[in-house]
Amino acid sequence: MSPWQEALSLLARLFVAGVFLYASYDKVWEPAKFAASVAQYDLIPLWSVNAVSVVMAWLEIILGAMLLLGLYTKAAAAWASALLIFFTGLMIYAGITGAGFDCGCFPGGVPGEAHAAGWLGAARDLGFLAAALWLAWRPGRWASLKA
């Protein structure tokens, strides 16, 4: 890879790592709140909500850590891309149904602040997905433990 591609991969890796770590710490620490967010989408059977939300939260934090360290970057980026494709689909679905509830993607910093599920969320996730897909294709070697 050329130096500019390596630099782009490093930037993409740190960006996606930051997004996943920021998004996941609250989901991991307060699993009940995230499970309620997952259940709101009304897409999976009620009995599976807790298990799915717990695994998803821990997947995000592990992927964020792996991308930050540059550990098995290609595999981590492949998982990140798969998750982001799923999240983008959820946002599109919410946009079509006109949901408007808090997507549960990121912690709200201010009381009442929320990230509404819908078209803007889909556009945002597509941006993250572009970075993750680049990484899955070109993981790069700069500042990584094992690309």
Binding site: V55, W58, I62, L145
Partner: peptide, 25 residues
């Protein structure tokens, strides 16, 4: 430069990540 890239079984590593997430969670 990081460690020179050697191919690893992508599917097995992805599966290991999932198992780790389940165990951690």
């Amino acid at each position: 430069g990081g460690e020179r890239r050697r191919p690893y079984p992508l599917f097995k590593v992805c599966l290991a990540i999932l198992v780790l997430a389940m165990a951690g969670g």
